[in-house]
């Protein structure tokens, strides 16, 4: 098979989520994120009227957009997009102006007061380099998260996207989000 450029993305199967928050804990353990913030989080929602109630929990994090607004507005290029689509922050170049936080439609970024820089999910690029999965994906007990390469048609991720219906969040922002929520 010819070599292809990778395009990492994430599929989230909301219906499987049991709101255990293991993804949040795993990420916190991996990156030592202060308790006030979190890279991934869970949107919890209750629908309906008693006794017919439905509790929905939906994981969210940086969407690693195809045209990231955070990268465009960054004055120093500290926020940038790798060739494989992952949007990362280079802490050395970040001046902490927080323009990217304002530009992000998903509020996926937070400001580390202790370091004076902005931080967010980076799909665990260090783990990827070792051939491992992102911490949240690996730890999820109900297999909500499927991480993979969009450009590899044989990947589980590409299969899910072609077989199942999905929705993107806030596509009208024009940033081309890359988290696919299965219906």
């Amino acid at each position: 098979m010819a070599a292809h450029t990778k395009r990492y993305a994430l599929v989230i199967d909301t219906k499987k989520c049991i709101n255990c928050k293991a993804c949040v804990v795993a990420c916190r353990a991996e990156y030592n994120v202060p308790l006030a913030y979190s890279r991934p989080w869970l949107n919890e929602e209750t629908r309906g009227v008693w006794p017919k109630l439905l509790a929905v929990s939906q994981p969210e994090q940086c969407h690693h957009c195809a045209h990231p607004a955070c990268v465009r507005v960054c004055p120093t290029g500290a926020s940038y997009q790798r060739a494989d689509g992952i949007v990362v922050v280079n802490e050395c170049d970040c001046v902490g102006c927080r323009y990217c936080m304002i530009a992000c439609p998903y509020n996926a970024r937070f400001f580390r007061e202790d370091k004076g820089v902005v931080e967010k999910c980076d799909f665990c690029v260090k783990r990827l380099a070792r051939g491992e999965l992102p911490a949240c994906v690996e730890t999820c007990p109900s297999k909500v998260r499927v991480f993979g390469d969009l450009n590899d048609p044989k990947s589980r991720l590409a299969e899910l996207i072609s077989d199942r219906e999905y929705r993107l969040k806030k596509p009208e922002a024009g940033t081309g989000p890359q988290i696919y929520y299965l219906m």
Binding site: C94, V95, G96, C97, R98, F111, K115, G116, V117, V118
Partner: peptide, 10 residues
């Protein structure tokens, strides 16, 4: 800014 002395990076 997050740290004022980093302004030169701009």
């Amino acid at each position: 800014l997050g740290r004022w002395y980093r302004f030169y990076k701009l």
